[in-house]
Amino acid sequence: MPRKRPMDDGDELLARLRSLTAQARERAELQRSQVELAIALQRGMLPRDLPDTPRCHVAVRYAPACYGLNVGGDWYDAFVMPDGRIGLSIGDVQGHNIEAAAFMGQVRAGLRALASVTSEPGELLTRTNDLLLSLGSDLFATCTFVRLDPSTGVLESARAGHIPFVWAMADGKSGIAEDEGGPPLGIEKGMEYPVARFRLTTGGVVILLTDGVVEGPSLYIEDGLDHVVRLAGIAAAAGLGADALAAAVIKGAELVGHEDDAAVLVVGHDGPDSQPGPQP
């Protein structure tokens, strides 16, 4: 009967390599499961349906980041409020993990719930900010909330640390909203958020977006926003629909070195004409 060969340094090295390989596989599987959970959590918290309202056209595009655990908390939302006006929100939660995705759901749900109490954008952001602080989370979020009257095209918006929206008119004029924003949600209690007013004319569009669309390692935010402004002007002048414009804008996210979520929300209006552009 052959005798067992005593273990030498080579055998110990092989055993150590097998152990390290098994540990690496376990960590990779855990990481993959966490990413899948975060993405599923994100998608489950985004709205399934968009408002179907005469004179208004709403379109969205969303691309989650999928590098390692780099899955964040960008969101969009669009819903009809009790007074018949449309509520639109878009935002970005600090961080890229499961906690960020869960916090995103709290912000979005809080905005919807409080919109039944007050639909005035500035007051709504103030109340949402205080609500988030009462939850005791260390996270914060940037956000834009818009209230749109479908019958008139009048749009009122307030920003909490978020990038401004882009607008365009049917004659090809386009630009970036010059509204005054407030601080992000979840940082300090009792904050106030100024409200800006804008009127969408026939064929006009407004584009709400997160910074993952216009900023990244390969693109400065100013250049990214300028690109969206040009796209919006061309699309509006050519009469392209909201859905086609949303698809074109989200494609621009490929230019940023996409390491972040990217969300786009476009709303167009077929209402009566009025004076175009930002309103005092």
Score class of each variant (00 low, 15 high):
residue 106 Q to I: 09
residue 35 V to P: 02
residue 145 F to T: 14
residue 128 T to V: 11
residue 121 P to G: 04
residue 11 D to C: 06
residue 48 R to N: 12
residue 259 E to K: 15
residue 199 R to N: 02
residue 139 L to K: 15
residue 263 A to D: 08
residue 160 A to G: 01
residue 44 G to W: 04
residue 6 P to M: 03
residue 180 E to G: 13
residue 98 I to P: 07
residue 76 Y to H: 08
residue 231 L to S: 01
residue 171 D to L: 11
residue 82 P to W: 00
residue 49 D to L: 05
residue 75 W to Q: 02
residue 233 G to M: 01
residue 259 E to W: 14
residue 130 D to K: 04
residue 177 A to P: 06
residue 124 L to T: 04
residue 53 T to S: 08
residue 262 A to S: 13
residue 232 A to R: 00
residue 169 M to S: 15
residue 244 A to E: 10
residue 36 E to P: 01
residue 267 V to D: 01
residue 167 W to H: 02
residue 152 T to Q: 04
residue 123 E to N: 01
residue 103 F to N: 12
residue 32 R to P: 03
residue 262 A to E: 10
residue 138 D to S: 09
residue 99 E to D: 15
residue 243 D to A: 12
residue 179 D to E: 14
residue 167 W to Q: 03
residue 227 H to E: 09
residue 8 D to H: 10
residue 80 V to T: 03
residue 175 G to W: 08
residue 71 V to S: 03
residue 233 G to N: 04
residue 197 R to M: 13
residue 13 L to C: 03
residue 273 D to T: 00
residue 162 H to Q: 06
residue 277 G to S: 06
residue 111 L to H: 03
residue 266 V to K: 07
residue 75 W to Y: 14
residue 83 D to F: 00
residue 74 D to N: 15
residue 124 L to C: 07
residue 188 E to G: 11
residue 177 A to E: 06
residue 35 V to L: 12
residue 145 F to V: 15
residue 38 A to W: 05
residue 183 P to H: 02
residue 138 D to A: 09
residue 2 P to K: 04
residue 161 G to W: 05
residue 269 H to W: 05
residue 115 A to C: 04
residue 217 P to L: 11
residue 113 A to G: 12
residue 276 P to F: 13
residue 219 L to F: 09
residue 131 L to K: 00
residue 224 G to V: 08
residue 25 R to D: 05
residue 51 P to L: 06
residue 244 A to M: 09
residue 221 I to F: 13
residue 115 A to D: 02
residue 253 A to S: 12
residue 258 H to D: 08
residue 181 G to Y: 07
residue 224 G to P: 10
residue 276 P to L: 10
residue 109 A to E: 13
residue 214 V to A: 07
residue 278 P to G: 08
residue 14 L to C: 12
residue 128 T to I: 06
residue 97 N to H: 13
residue 119 S to T: 09
residue 138 D to N: 11
residue 184 P to K: 08
residue 189 K to M: 14
residue 226 D to Q: 02
residue 141 A to G: 07
residue 229 V to F: 11
residue 247 A to I: 12
residue 272 P to F: 15
residue 81 M to E: 04
residue 93 V to H: 13
residue 168 A to L: 05
residue 92 D to F: 13
residue 213 V to I: 11
residue 150 P to W: 03
residue 148 L to I: 02
residue 216 G to C: 01
residue 27 R to P: 11
residue 48 R to L: 15
residue 174 S to Q: 04
residue 73 G to C: 13
residue 78 A to V: 03
residue 146 V to T: 06
residue 19 S to P: 05
residue 168 A to E: 05
residue 77 D to E: 11
residue 155 L to D: 03
residue 31 Q to M: 13
residue 91 G to A: 10
residue 8 D to E: 11
residue 75 W to R: 06
residue 21 T to V: 12
residue 65 A to P: 09
residue 7 M to C: 02
residue 80 V to Y: 02
residue 68 G to K: 10
residue 154 V to C: 12
residue 181 G to D: 08
residue 245 L to G: 04
residue 57 H to T: 10
residue 81 M to Y: 01
residue 12 E to N: 00
residue 174 S to P: 01
residue 190 G to T: 02
residue 251 K to R: 12
residue 98 I to S: 14
residue 9 D to R: 05
residue 14 L to P: 09
residue 34 Q to L: 06
